[in-house]
C-alpha cells in the first residue's frame, strides 16, 4: 500500500462517524464528506443497514426530484440523519459564520454566504462541522457574524445541531448543555499543546484522548478502487489532486 494521504485519514475518521445513519446528505463544496459518505455506503453494502447518500452536486447521487427546496423540506421532516457544515469561523459555542470577517455589513473580508445553514443546523440531528484549516483565525472565541447559532432556547424548534467538529488536527465532540467542545482524537503529527495553541477557544479534553485511526488496507483499497472514480464525476478538481494526478 502506498503512502496514505492526510485527506484519506480524515475521510476514514468521518466514515466512522456515520455508523448508524440511514441517510446522509452532502451539500456544496464538500468533497471529503462526500467521499466519506460513499465509503460508508460501500462498506455497508450487503448488510441489513443500508445507507442512503444524497450528493446535491451530482446527477446520479442526488436522490431529489422536487427541486433544490426538497433537501430543506426533507431535512425539516427528519428524513436526513447527518449533514456537514463548514465556516469561515467557528466559535467555542459552535456558532458558525459563513458570511465574512469584520463588522457586518461592511466586512473586511466577505465570503460566499450562509447557504442553507440557518435551517439545516436546527433540524438535522447530527451536524458534523468540518473545517480543514485549524488555526486561531478559523476556530475563534466568538464569531464576527452568526449564520446559524450552535444552540437555541427551549421555545425554538430544534431537534438538530452540532455533534462533532473535525479539522486536520483533531476531532471534537460538542456538548449542547454545557455549550462546549471536547477533544476526542488528535492527529499524531501534533501535540495537544499545539492543538490548544492553534484553537481560539477553550475546550475540554477527553481523559482517554486517542489518535486518529489509520485506515485499514481493506478500507483504503475500497476508497481508491471504488470511491475515487465516483468522486471524480462530481468533485473533479479534488479527485484529481488526491488520486488521479
Amino acid at each position: 500500500m502506498s503512502e496514505i494521504f492526510q485527506s484519506e485519514i480524515i475521510i476514514s475518521e468521518i466514515t466512522n462517524l456515520l455508523k448508524n445513519d440511514k441517510h446522509v446528505a452532502i451539500g456544496a463544496a464538500s468533497p471529503i464528506p462526500g467521499s466519506a459518505a460513499l465509503l460508508a455506503q460501500e462498506e455497508r453494502k450487503n448488510t441489513n443497514s443500508k445507507l442512503q447518500v444524497t450528493i446535491l452536486h451530482s446527477q446520479k447521487f442526488n436522490n431529489f426530484t422536487d427541486g433544490s427546496r426538497e433537501l430543506f423540506d426533507a431535512s425539516a421532516q427528519g428524513r436526513i440523519d447527518t449533514f456537514f457544515l463548514g465556516g469561515v469561523q467557528i466559535d467555542g459555542e459552535a456558532n458558525i459564520n459563513l458570511v465574512g470577517t469584520g463588522t457586518y455589513p461592511k466586512l473586511n473580508k466577505r465570503f460566499s454566504g450562509s447557504f442553507g445553514s440557518a435551517l439545516m443546523y436546527f433540524v438535522v440531528p447530527k451536524i458534523i462541522l468540518f473545517r480543514e484549516e485549524h488555526t486561531p483565525r478559523t476556530l475563534v472565541k466568538k464569531v464576527d457574524f452568526i449564520s446559524a447559532p450552535g444552540t437555541s432556547p427551549s421555545n425554538v424548534f430544534r431537534p438538530g445541531g452540532p455533534k462533532y467538529l473535525i479539522t486536520n488536527k483533531a476531532l471534537f465532540s460538542f456538548n449542547k448543555k454545557d455549550k462546549n467542545f471536547k477533544i476526542e482524537k488528535i492527529n499524531p503529527d501534533f501535540t495537544l499543546d499545539e492543538v490548544i495553541k492553534s484553537t481560539g477557544f477553550e475546550f475540554k479534553t477527553n481523559k482517554n484522548l486517542k489518535f486518529f485511526t489509520m485506515p485499514s488496507k481493506k478500507r483504503i483499497d475500497i476508497l481508491r478502487d471504488l470511491i475515487a472514480p465516483k468522486v471524480l464525476n462530481f468533485y473533479p478538481q479534488f479527485a484529481k489532486k488526491i488520486w488521479f494526478n
Binding site: S68, A76, V99, K106, K109, F111, S114, G116, S117
Partner: peptide, 20 residues
C-alpha cells in the same frame, strides 16, 4: 466581495430555504 467590502451594493443576506 469587492462590492460588499466597499459598500457599492446593498445585500439582503438570506438562507436557501427562506429564498424558496
Amino acid at each position: 466581495q469587492d462590492a460588499i467590502e466597499n459598500s457599492k451594493i446593498k445585500i439582503k443576506d438570506s438562507t436557501c430555504p427562506a429564498l424558496h
